[in-house]
Amino acid sequence: MRIDKVVFYILVIGMITSIALFVTSMLLSSITKIYLSAMLARIGVEVLIATPYITIASIVVMSVLKRDYRLLVLALIVLIIMMLSLTMSLVLHATP
């Protein structure tokens, strides 16, 4: 399978899942199911934030499978910096 197709499917799944969760959450909040509504919105946020991480990880895997080592290096650098940034914020407790 082509890399752009894999990326496309991951993005679409991330988008549809999060929007479904957000819409359900907003509907529930209007009929006073506050706890459930908040939980669904939180999962929606988590899905949204996780989608780019899953996308870049999938590009790493796909470039290994395709033996495209130049793309692999680029994707790995991006993934490492993204993880480094997260680790530093967790360790330093620095909030932008």
Binding site: F22, S29, S37, V45, M82, L86, S89
Partner: peptide
């Protein structure tokens, strides 16, 4: 943006019920 967003999320500043209408 995801790199920045996860930092805010871990810090507990993201209000999911505020994000829901914005993101939709």
């Amino acid at each position: 943006a995801a790199t920045g967003a996860i930092v805010y999320y871990v810090a507990g500043i993201v209000r999911p019920q505020l994000v829901a209408p914005v993101a939709t």
